[in-house]
Nucleic acid binder design. Structure first.
Ligand SMILES: [Zn+2]
Ligand SMILES: [Zn+2]
Ligand SMILES: [Zn+2]
Ligand SMILES: [Zn+2]
Lengths: 153, 153
DNA sequence: GCAGTCGCTGCTATGTTGTAACATCACTGA
DNA sequence: TCAGTGATGTTACAACATAGCAGCGACTGC
């Protein structure tokens, strides 16, 4: 069984446990994200479904499906890039906390990391001193991956 | 002289020193951002110029002007919100480093802060270990300001 | 002053991201 | 089988952003 198929299997299991439905279309969208090591935009996923499965899924549906997958914790939305990425921990049983992302500006490759929680709480403290409350600890950082770094130099 | 006028004066001075031109339109766009304590979108700035000066500036020009102002360090672009904000330090002579932003999701109010440089360098280190190089140290955090926090509760 | 140049702005069209409102389809359970 | 619910389709549109080319206007050098 391919890596992707295993992850999809795991995702289906996850939905069964939560009493939600992993439909065919949802599986297709998720498989697009899992297959790709890059973040994809909603419209890139439309193209993917068209090419891969010959199925035309309207934008509205893609967005609803992405919202569902995000709700289930299977997908993360990258607000900095307006793109979506499969969670890197679908197959871990431990529930992960709020993730941080390194996003390559060259090729959209994304690395999901978990930084030192002490740092996050220090950020939170700084925010509170300024009269703000952090609503999400999801940090997104504008990076270049080593590969793109090399070809740029 | 009003606060805003003082800041605009300072901005003009800044451009003179750098040999760039602070035109009327650029001044109008900048004044919109300086006047507002919130981040504004390009299209909100179009509306501002229309209402405040009776002048219809096309979107293309607004974007070009914003790019210019950002180049000059007078304006910051918030990628998380697709909005723009005047630099909080136009009147400081000390050049500021890369800023971080607290963005209220309720009312778009923005606070420009500078977090502990040690934290940034720790982030950088985490990124490098993951094979990425941080291209911008501009962090943008999704927050609620105290005011919106209060009215939400 | 005047021509040439370069930077700024206008215009039109188009691309990209995302949502509202309402209709329809499909699975589930009585 | 039939109602109810959740998933998907359709159409239209809003908001954000850029391409490409034309015109205008302010400096430069003569
Ligand atoms: Zn994850
Ligand atoms: Zn890359
Ligand atoms: Zn600033
Ligand atoms: Zn607020």
């Amino acid at each position: 069984m391919s890596q992707t198929a295993g992850i999809l299997e795991q995702a289906e299991q996850h939905c069964r446990e939560r009493g939600s439905r992993m439909t065919e279309k949802r599986k297709r969208v998720l498989s697009g994200l899992v297959d790709s090591d890059k973040a994809l935009s909603a419209y890139e996923l439309i193209d993917y479904c068209k090419e891969q499965f010959g199925e035309n899924i309207p934008a509205m549906s893609i967005y609803r499906i992405l919202a569902f997958l995000e709700e289930e914790g299977l997908v993360h939305k990258l607000n900095l890039a307006n793109k979506y990425v499969a969670c890197a921990h679908i197959c871990c049983d431990h529930s992960h906390g709020v993730p941080q992302f390194l996003i390559c500006g060259g090729c959209s490759k994304v690395k999901e990391i978990t930084v030192n929680p002490a740092m996050i709480s220090e950020l939170k403290k700084s925010a509170e001193q300024a009269g703000f409350t952090m609503m999400s600890q999801q940090l997104e950082m504008d990076c270049l991956c080593d590969e793109c770094m090399g070809s740029a130099a």
